[in-house]
Design a binder for these strands. Structure first.
Lengths: 247, 247
DNA sequence: GCTTTAGCTTGATCCAAGTCAACCGAAAAA
DNA sequence: TTTTTCGGTTGACTTGGATCAAGCTAAAGC
């Protein structure tokens, strides 16, 4: 939501001005744990908000890195392209999550970030994030936690790709989405997929046909109801059980 | 190497005292880019060195996190255990690399770190690393780069697990090891594997038999010479070509 | 020294997921 | 409105790697 200070009636400015202090994602995003005064200093840093239309790139692999991005609304995927044309989706990101952390290491982005629906992002110039986190201990620590969480998440995906069979992977994927939607106040049982079967397959190391077949099986078993991109989870425990049984 | 200041002849103390400023890994490890004065402040922080015998745990999943670890010498693996007994090796770490970054997020370690040969590590209390990096800009930035590099590395493994066939995975693995040994001044063409076929397989999402067969094929093709854990790379380009051709 | 055991290799067989192909349905374009 | 296109589903067939099994090698223990 835009800032609506009674002292500042300049609507056109306030609309493009981002304000972490009034953002309803502040408990999920970078501002987590900051007090009011610290929040206002963060507001100064996160200067620009930008709209990204569905299908557009937020950044491309190889571009110079200078900011990380917080998703204010919408849905993204990141993917990596190999020289020989193979590519893989490395993640799906939703509101409150950060994009671009991979670029810090080489000062160039190492993957593409593409909007899967019309989205809004906040740019956070990285050098300013570093200088502010030298002053605000809480911000520094939270940022470290976010980076570490990304590493843990990636280990989870490696686990999934390395040890799970097709249906287990898809079950894990659906449960993960459900859990993230819940954290954002949406239904845990009913949602629309923003990505195609092919993108799901790429992320899970499967072909689109295999993803489609697994959806059909889940439906036959009564775990879910699928209609194209519309998913209803009917039996969370069924899906969970599917994952924990070594077969 | 231990500190050998002419002013401090207390050998017993200097042996257990770590000194980043005289460590020959400082260009690979956390001290990278620091000046002398900054290095000495880092020395104060990295207080303890510890020996870990082959097969012993440096830490276990679930333990409280309070330090990250730099490998001074030796070789480690990290692995994750799922409830149902499945496990997967998530990485192999060698001298100059950091262990424990995954623990920052939840303040508990999320994987096990096990020495694959007798090793020495430096403990770096994380809260002190944070406070020091609030003062030393270069340290802060370098630490962020190291965390980011870990994320990029994990994306590479996801790519490998998601899109490559068995022989491509093993070729990528050997080339990666070779490159890391080179960076440490060892031969790029000849080295001993510290891990078993089963551990390699676990890391690459393959069974040990498949790893063994791939080694044999590489030998038949003249790419490498294998004898148990002793590897000689005879044709780097052969291995590289194997990875880049979509088949 | 010999014995044991953990790790490695190789062969035979099987199966989960990939490939190829046809068709369907929904949404976008004309 | 009709047509086209893109994404999804389903079936038939193939295959890469898993599984099962036997034997080998080298280092560790006695």
């Amino acid at each position: 939501m835009p800032r609506t200070s009674p002292l500042n009636q300049d609507i056109s400015l306030s609309l493009i001005k981002t304000a972490c202090s009034s953002c309803n994602l502040r408990e999920l995003c970078l501002p987590f744990g900051l007090n009011l005064e610290e929040l206002e200093r963060l507001d100064d840093m996160v200067s620009t908000r930008r709209r990204i239309k569905r299908g557009d790139h937020l950044y491309r692999a190889g571009e110079a890195f200078d900011s990380i991005f917080a998703i204010r609304s919408g849905f993204f995927k990141t993917d990596v392209l190999l020289e020989d044309g193979r590519d893989q989706v490395t993640g799906f990101q939703m509101a409150g999550e950060l994009l671009g952390l991979d670029g810090i290491s080489t000062e160039h982005h190492t993957c593409n970030a593409i909007a899967l629906e019309d989205s809004e992002i906040c740019s956070i110039p990285f050098s300013r994030l570093e200088s502010l986190s030298r002053e605000i201990h809480t911000l520094q620590h939270h940022f470290h936690k976010v980076m570490s969480r990304e590493i843990v998440r990636d280990h989870g995906v490696m686990m999934l790709l390395g040890t799970m069979r097709a249906e287990e992977r898809l079950a894990a994927f659906l449960l993960n989405l459900s859990q993230r939607f819940t954290a954002r106040g949406f239904s845990h049982a009913e949602f629309y997929l923003r990505m195609t079967r092919e993108e799901i397959g790429s992320y899970l190391g499967l072909k689109l046909e295999t993803v489609s077949r697994a959806f059909s099986r889940f439906q036959e078993e009564g775990y879910i109801a699928v209609q194209q991109k519309h998913i209803r989870i009917l039996d969370v425990n069924g899906l969970k059980a599917l994952m924990n049984h070594r077969s």
